[in-house]
């Protein structure tokens, strides 16, 4: 089976500033990988590249063995058409630090909108699935409300339900608890633990919640300056880091 995500020689520059260069790594099907490292080390950029929110400067990203935005043909690197990109992107979902719920619709419509308009599901089917997911994240009774009436933690749980409604193979979690008040973090992480336990969705996770990272991820990759400093099982990396930079980083956040 091909890796569900493969980074091959990925480079990303913002103007003159190089964030990632020559980055290679694989994520196996069903694998949950947590990216850690100081801010500016390129973790979030990696997630945004997979979601096609940023354009690759060079290199390739393969999803399930298929090119995401750029393909290699006869040794040349070519940009794929939007339609082809969309066909691959269908398998990827993302939850953002700032939720990004749509304020022009109710909670349930947030969860059904793309099911209907992207996946072409019937309204009834989308609603049933939406309610089931809202139930799973503990917010079924808030379905008809406006998102602005929810707390941050509740908004984030809706955002998780919204992403799951698209049946993604890959879920990207970008600092999903960083914008929350401390007392709301637990509920969101509990929902994600549940998703990790009950599905085989592959995940790329950027978080500062080390206990969560240890519990749900199969692998931890430590980044600094756009490079992988070290990687391995969470118990090894988080408890016994071999690199000075990893140790310093872990000390700084604990």
């Amino acid at each position: 089976m091909p890796p569900v995500i493969r980074f091959e020689g990925v480079q990303k520059k913002f103007g003159d500033h190089t964030v990632l260069s020559g980055l290679n790594f694989d994520v196996a099907p069903g694998e949950r990988v947590t990216l850690i490292g100081p801010s500016g080390s390129g973790k979030t950029t990696i997630l945004r590249l997979v979601m096609t929110l940023e354009e690759l400067t060079d290199g390739y990203i393969w999803i399930d063995g298929k090119p995401l935005t750029h393909d290699r043909r006869d040794g040349k690197r070519i940009r794929l058409r939007e339609k082809q990109v969309a066909a691959t992107r269908k398998q990827i979902g993302m939850v953002f630090q700032h939720f990004n719920l749509f304020p022009n619709m109710s909670v349930i419509d947030n969860v059904t909108e793309a099911q209907v308009h992207v996946l072409g599901r019937g309204k009834e089917e989308a609603r049933d699935r939406g309610l089931a997911l809202l139930d799973q994240v503990g917010l079924k009774d808030r379905a008809e409300e406006h998102p602005s009436r929810l707390s941050g933690g509740q908004k984030q749980r809706v955002a998780i339900a919204r992403a799951l409604a698209m049946d993604p193979k890959i879920l990207l979690l970008d600092e999903v608890t960083s914008a929350l008040d401390p007392e709301l973090v637990g509920d969101v992480l509990a929902v994600l633990r549940d998703v990790a336990d009950t599905t085989d969705i592959s995940m790329l996770i950027v978080t500062h919640e080390m206990q969560f990272a240890r519990d749900v991820s199969h692998k931890v990759m430590m980044f600094d300056g756009g490079q992988i400093v070290e990687q391995g099982a969470p118990t090894d990396i988080l408890a016994n880091p071999t690199h000075e930079r990893t140790r310093k980083f872990l000390d700084s956040i604990l």
Binding site: M94, N100, E113, H117, M166
Partner: peptide, 19 residues
């Protein structure tokens, strides 16, 4: 974030604008 949220749900350009 609204554009990105819509893109992450794989909405087409037209759907994203319209909805």
């Amino acid at each position: 974030g609204q554009w990105e949220g819509a893109t992450a749900l794989n909405m087409s350009r037209v759907t994203r604008m319209r909805r």
